[in-house]
C-alpha cells in the first residue's frame, strides 16, 4: 500500500506537469487552430534559457529564472505567433503542422549544437527532502510540483471564468467572428493565449528539468504526453486537459511498476487509441459537429 501511495503521488506530480503543458497546447488549438508539434521542445527550451543566463551572463539561479521566463514570453509566445503562426494561418492546418515539426527540429538541433548534447544537471526550486506520510516516502519535490501546478491551474481558471478578459478570451475561442462583432479585440486575445502558453511551458520546464535533467531530447516524450493528455481529457475543455494529464501521469507510473517497465511508454498510447475510437471528443469534452 505504501508503495502504491508513493507511485500514485509521484505519478500525480508528473501528471500535473503534463496537465500544464496540455492546457497550453489546447489553448493554442482552440484560439488559433495551431497544433503545436513543438510543444515538447517548448518545455525543453526554458531550462536552457536558465542555463544560458547562468553561463553567459553569470547571474545567480533566481535572476536567471526571471530572465528565462521573460525570454519564453518573448520567443515562445510573441515571436512564435508573429513569425510562424500568423503568416501560416491562411494556409490551413497541415502546413502549420509541418512548420511546427520543422520548428521542433530547429529547437532541438540548436540546443544540441550551441549548448550541449549531454544531459545537464538542473537546480530544483526547493531543496529535495523525503517526507514520511502514512509509511510512504514522498519527495518534497512532488508536493511542491502539485502545489505550484494547482496554483497555476486555479489562477488560470480564475482568469478564464472570473474576469472580463477571460470571458473575452473564451468568446474568441468559441466564435471569433461573433466575438469581433461584439467588439472584442480578437487578435489581442489570441496573443494572450500564446503568452499564457509560454508561461505554462516555462513553469513546466522549471519543475520537470530537475527530475529529468535538462537534455535536448526531453521534448519528444513531453510533447507526446501533452498530446495524449489533451486528447484523452477532451480537446475543447481546460478541465479535460487537466484530468487527462493527471490520469496519464498516474497510469504511466503504475503501469511501469505493475505491468511492464518495457512497455511503460505503450500504455498511454493504447489509452489514446481506445479513447479516440470510443469517445473521440475525450472523456470530459463536448462532441464537435462535423462540417461539410
Amino acid at each position: 500500500m505504501a508503495a502504491f501511495i508513493q507511485l500514485f503521488v509521484s505519478g500525480l506530480a508528473t501528471g500535473a506537469i503534463y496537465a500544464l503543458v496540455a492546457v497550453g497546447f489546447m489553448l493554442l488549438w482552440q484560439t488559433s487552430q495551431t497544433i503545436n508539434f513543438a510543444q515538447g521542445e517548448f518545455v525543453m527550451i526554458p531550462a536552457f534559457f536558465v542555463l544560458w543566463a547562468i553561463k553567459i551572463l553569470g547571474v545567480g539561479f533566481w535572476p536567471a529564472v526571471g530572465i528565462a521566463v521573460i525570454a519564453s514570453l518573448l520567443i515562445l509566445g510573441l515571436l512564435f505567433k508573429r513569425a510562424i503562426v500568423d503568416p501560416m494561418l491562411k494556409h490551413g492546418v497541415l502546413p502549420l503542422v509541418i512548420s511546427t515539426i520543422a520548428l521542433s527540429i530547429f529547437l532541438k538541433e540548436a540546443v544540441k549544437d550551441f549548448y550541449s548534447s549531454q544531459a545537464q544537471p538542473f537546480q530544483a526550486m526547493i531543496p529535495s527532502e523525503d517526507l514520511n506520510l502514512f509509511g510512504a516516502v514522498i519527495s518534497s519535490q512532488s508536493i511542491f510540483i502539485l502545489l505550484i501546478a494547482s496554483g497555476a491551474v486555479l489562477g488560470l481558471n480564475k482568469l478564464l471564468n472570473g474576469t472580463r478578459l477571460g470571458r473575452a478570451m473564451q468568446a474568441t475561442a468559441q466564435n471569433p467572428s461573433v466575438a469581433r462583432i461584439l467588439g472584442i479585440p480578437v487578435e489581442r486575445m489570441i496573443m494572450y493565449t500564446f503568452l499564457i502558453n509560454a508561461l505554462l511551458v516555462a513553469l513546466a520546464s522549471l519543475m520537470i528539468s530537475p527530475i529529468y535533467l535538462a537534455k535536448f531530447t526531453n521534448g519528444d516524450t513531453l510533447g507526446l504526453a501533452a498530446f495524449i493528455a489533451a486528447i484523452v481529457g477532451g480537446f475543447n475543455q481546460v478541465r479535460g486537459a487537466i484530468v487527462g494529464g493527471l490520469i496519464l501521469g498516474v497510469i504511466e507510473n503504475l503501469a511501469a511498476a505493475y505491468i511492464s517497465a518495457q512497455y511503460r511508454g505503450a500504455i498511454p498510447l493504447i489509452l489514446l487509441i481506445v479513447v479516440i475510437l470510443w469517445r473521440p471528443q475525450g472523456l470530459m469534452g463536448r462532441a464537435e459537429e462535423r462540417t461539410v
Binding site: 488549438w29 497544433i35 492546418v93 503542422v97 507526446l224 498530446f227 495524449i228 486528447i231 518495457q262 512497455y263 511508454g265 505503450a266 498510447l269 493504447i270 489514446l272 487509441i273 479516440i276 475510437l277 473521440p280
Partner: peptide
C-alpha cells in the same frame, strides 16, 4: 473512418510509437 485531421494524426503517431516499442 471515425476521426479525421488532427485526431487521425495522433492515432497514427501512437501506432508508429507502438510499432517501435
Amino acid at each position: 473512418l471515425r476521426v479525421q485531421h488532427h485526431y487521425l494524426a495522433f492515432v497514427t503517431l501512437a501506432f508508429s510509437t507502438l510499432v517501435f516499442l
